[in-house]
Computed example of a mutant assay.
Amino acid sequence: MKKFATIAVAFGLLSAILAGCSGGSGSATATPTATESSQSLGEITVISREEGSGTRGAFIELFGVEEKDANGNKVDHTTEEALIANKTDVVITQVAASKSAIGYISLGSLNDTVKALKVDGVDATAENVSNGTYSIARPFNIATKGTPSEVAQDFIDFILSADGQRIVSDNNYIPVDANAATYAGTKPNGKIVVAGSSSVSPLMEKLQEAYLALNPNATIEIQTSDSTTGMQSTMSGICDIGMASRELKDSELAELTPIVIAKDGIAMIVNKENSLDNISSETVKEIYTGVITDWADVA
């Protein structure tokens, strides 16, 4: 009897499937699509960076997620429901793995595993950052304390030369000097440690590779963490050059000398199966402050 019941259930399921597929007159047949309507994705999975991240600092300032309280103190209102990622590539991985996720990353780190949204109708591109139409952008800074060593100064000279700025441009960042002179270094010996922002690190690795091809006498170690750690490491003498993907704070400027090496946009990213293409600045703020929690409420 149990065997008969099992067969009957299986037959019933098969009949239902066939009926759904046949789509008699008047019936509608759903057509699969490559992307899902954002409204059908349910609760939004908010991905943010850790405290101390220069990308987070720039993001919360640019989108108004950070606001001053009654005493004039800056308060970060990022929702407590946000999942925290401690590196740029972790944000990308999390968004690529979740249909309901949204995150923000360095524009130069964008790849084809996720989708960048237009913000206020403007595409997130290096060209639009350069011409000012995409305003969600921040500087890439390096910083030193006191007089840099000979090899550290030579590496900085390379970064700011035409050769270094070409690498900046080739990697989808915006150079700070399109008319820089060609690098003419002295190939000094020595080792330097560069530490800080995980947003600046991918560009710094490209600059490191190109510089060492010209000066094999040097050794450069890159330690990736976040902007605040990079500045603290520079102030304490742990590293020779710090990296920050934001403006330096007053307390940092009191001890360090900053140098802008590039400009970078911040891209808002979603899963590739999300049908959304454009988002307003106000909606981004409302998502990251917890006012909007479901994709159905995203216009």
Rank of each mutant, 00 (worst) to 15 (best):
M231V: 08
E51K: 06
S100I: 00
T29P: 02
D277M: 02
E209F: 15
S161H: 11
S199Y: 10
Y173P: 02
Y183K: 01
V151L: 06
I220S: 01
T79H: 12
A210M: 12
A10W: 13
I241D: 03
K87E: 14
I174C: 04
A97F: 14
D297S: 10
V9D: 12
K263S: 14
Y211W: 09
R56I: 06
A82R: 02
L253P: 10
K68G: 09
G72S: 08
S135K: 11
T31Y: 15
L214M: 09
A244C: 11
K263R: 14
D123M: 04
G146A: 11
D157K: 00
G57R: 04
R166F: 15
E221A: 04
D250V: 03
K206E: 12
Q153H: 06
G72F: 13
C239M: 03
I222D: 03
A181Y: 11
Y183R: 01
S38M: 08
S22Y: 14
A195N: 10
G103V: 05
G132P: 13
L212R: 04
A101Q: 01
S98Y: 10
T144R: 03
S198D: 15
N131V: 10
L248R: 01
G190P: 05
V114K: 00
S98D: 14
K145E: 15
T144Q: 05
G42A: 09
D297V: 07
I261W: 03
L41T: 05
A58M: 06
V194N: 04
A19F: 15
N86K: 08
L41M: 09
E80V: 08
I156K: 00
S135V: 09
L160G: 02
V114E: 05
T113F: 15
Y134L: 00
V270N: 06
Q208S: 14
K206N: 10
R138D: 10
V200H: 04
S245G: 15
A8M: 13
